[in-house]
Design a protein around this nucleic acid. Sequence first.
DNA 1: TAGATTGTTAATCGATTAACAATC
DNA 2: TAGATTGTTAATCGATTAACAATC
Lengths: 200, 200
Amino acid sequence: MLNSGINRISSKELSERMGITASQIRQDLNCFGGFGQQGYGYNVESLYKEIGRILGLDNNFQTIIIGAGNMGRALANYKNFEKRGFKLIGIFDKDPKVVGQKINDLDVRHIDDLQKFTQENKVDIAMLCVPHDETPIVAEKAAACGIKGLWNFSPMELKLSHSNVNKNIVIENVHLSDSLMVLGYKINEMMKANKNELPR
Amino acid sequence: MLNSGINRISSKELSERMGITASQIRQDLNCFGGFGQQGYGYNVESLYKEIGRILGLDNNFQTIIIGAGNMGRALANYKNFEKRGFKLIGIFDKDPKVVGQKINDLDVRHIDDLQKFTQENKVDIAMLCVPHDETPIVAEKAAACGIKGLWNFSPMELKLSHSNVNKNIVIENVHLSDSLMVLGYKINEMMKANKNELPR
DNA sequence: TAGATTGTTAATCGATTAACAATC
DNA sequence: TAGATTGTTAATCGATTAACAATC
């Protein structure tokens, strides 16, 4: 809306765009503050800023990627993250053939240099893109370095060992398989509703 | 559990592993059928099969990837999908430098060959890994070819044009930025709770 | 001032949890 | 038969929606 030059919106209009009720928009926003104005609605720019503040996007989180395979590279090239306040400052891998390569102006470092790197640089978030079976070990390492958030891409619910549970660390799991299975389920439901089986 | 040789589990044990109540497990499963047995619990193998059936994993969905960039390649190398009943049978791109390359035993085809390909092969799902601005066009193309599900990786809520809305097609959006912002939010909350600001 | 739209309270709805009879 | 645990009904809780006074 900002880009389209819309500078004012009511909860009613927003509800139509978002497919939820106006009540819910007002109710939810009011959990964080009174961002609107009676008789006017919401100012798009200020609402945008407030939501950014709620999400903490003004924190400028410093992030690293661990695992420079295809997924790691894909994330490194995602332009959107920086726009949202997540700055990529390092990429790590254990493969000597990959270490030293340049990805997006960043040298791939050896995973053994992680501790030194985190001592010299503030690292908030590690994006874990290593193979399935290496994830728990790498996660423990990252936790030991004082990283505050782990973004896990391996198809497992990542949990930390007891010694690290008390450390202040947040884990967000991205379960791609789950999402794909949901798609499969919905396709099924659709086919059933249409009474034509999957033609197989 | 299957792999660990556990062949029987009660809703209580499951609830402890999953961090939800036993009531909810029984309630939810019973939406789909009575898979347990009084006094015994659930047979792990049969429960696994039943859940697979609910999700439609026995459908063996045929999938293609559109966009052979880093994300497309990452997905092509994900071993887990096949295990869950999603078979990758084609990869498409529009870049002549990429078309013809081999990824995981599959030749990258030109996007212009999509229609012909879908006529000759049953394609259920297209994974969309093309840049942001190309996604809507590619999605329309895929929809026109009779593909039943779109798995969208670009950072936008994908919607189809009116002509395709009535076509039977399901869209599942993977919003990686959203997930990352949730992680950022949680880190924030944690820091606030600990009363130490993000040290920046 | 009149109209619009918020913030907020009250009513409704749905989802989670608790309880227990049925039954393996 | 006794013990365990389900399937299912009833009670509770929380989230969504509706309504409206406050106010820009």
